[in-house]
Design a protein around this nucleic acid. Structure first.
Lengths: 233, 233
DNA sequence: GTATCATTCAAACGTTCGTTTGAATTCTTC
DNA sequence: GAAGAATTCAAACGAACGTTTGAATGATAC
């Protein structure tokens, strides 16, 4: 039960997790080999198997370390908002901010490696390997349930099916934005340097997602803003 | 120049491309080995290197086969719309339909393997391997340029920076929807069987994306639809 | 039918992968 | 400082990887 020895005791684990986070982001799970990974961490090749058991277990540990606190922070922010609202339903925009705020805050956190993780996380939602996807799904389950309920209360007129899809779309936008910013340049002239300004990015995302979530339903023709809705093909 | 021998002449190539498309989608580029791939295609292990040169060249060929016609169809649809509009700027919704329609149409095309490719494509936008990303970017460059110009003409009041970001968001939503539908189930109760109805999915996507694209700007407070815009945190 | 080309095939190449091993070293406890 | 547990280390393991080879087989042209 020595106290001052706790930190160096787990330093090898931490070094491995940090290196894994960065290399998984850069090269993917299969592309980042144990030798490359342990070399970057400055530890012996066998250290991963000793401390984590296997590479797959290391992958799981990388997500555990960040995802649990991240979703806890999301839920805490939702709790805070609901407590302040005193029974009134929250605005959709406020719920969206509670969900994406924590992710985007980590982008600016360059020191603690949050940026690496957020980009890694964004990519992992579409990871082909099934165990990883189910792992992510399990870690998100309770959080998604809470936010779904919050959205449903904020938008009582939106059918449940539509809410599912729109949450799906919103999550996709966030995921892609986190993963692909400063990597893909599909649109010529796009300046990914702006990503550093995560405040501005957050405002842009909130505007886009809120509008999408509140979009008129396909059937009901309560007019949108200015678009001349004309059917094509 | 024999005519009746053309088809069986390229059948090995086609079989390899089909198998690669499916296995790359299921297991990723690194996860789908040459032995698994050639076994599924029913060809010899050396056939890939003989016909394509290398595994990387095969990956490129998989995208070439589908992406070029796909983007050509998008541009053709855009041409058709602009010709019919006779100088008038198109509606944003019509442009969105022109862009996503071709992708979604391929989802229903189960026979020709279009579904496999579309899902593979959606995942590849966030692929860690750099050569693949630059390949995709190159194949999309001219198409994105055309659509960017069309959107700019349809939305003359939207600043260029904002248009970039909103196209980025829109592309992300489409990408994630194509890649993750029926694979990820982050939201409990979500029924991915609906993906088979690509008409309904297209309408949902068009509604969401159009609303996001036309969202009010962060600064200007020209009221949106019904949301009680309340700043949080 | 024979020469010529393209394609297929089984086998092996060298490399890299994740993991294991057992001794060496460091840290903890008394 | 000795005993014992925890950790690190160099080395090797078998398996799987993408690729290459050279002979066998097929189709094409004269």
């Amino acid at each position: 039960m020595n106290l001052r020895a706790i930190k160096p005791q787990h330093e090898t684990r931490r070094r491995i997790l940090d290196a894994a986070e960065e290399l998984f982001m850069q090269h993917g799970f299969e592309g980042a080999s144990m030798r490359l990974l342990t070399a970057k961490a400055g530890v012996n090749l066998a250290a991963v198997n000793y401390h984590f058991g296997s590479k797959d277990a290391l992958i799981e540990a990388v997500f555990q370390r960040r995802l649990d606190p991240m979703n806890a922070a999301r839920l805490a922010e939702l709790d805070r908002l609901e407590a302040a609202a005193a029974g009134e339903p929250l605005s959709p925009e406020a719920i969206i901010r509670a969900f994406i705020g924590e992710s985007l805050a980590m982008i600016e956190d360059g020191r603690n490696g949050g940026r690496n993780f957020v980009r890694l996380l964004g990519r992992t939602y579409t990871e082909p390997a099934k165990p990883i996807r189910t792992l992510i799904g399990r870690m998100y389950a309770s959080t998604m349930e809470r936010f779904k309920a919050a959205f449903a209360r904020a938008l009582p007129d939106l059918p449940s099916d539509e809410l599912f899809w729109r949450m799906h779309f919103m999550f996709g936008t966030l995921s892609y934005t986190l993963a692909a910013t400063d990597t893909v340049q599909l649109i010529a002239g796009f300046k990914p340097e702006d990503r550093h300004d995560s405040r501005a990015l957050q405002e842009r995302l909130v505007q886009f997602l809120t509008a999408g979530l509140l979009a008129p339903l396909p059937g009901s023709s309560r007019g949108s803003t200015t678009s001349s809705v004309r059917k094509a093909a």
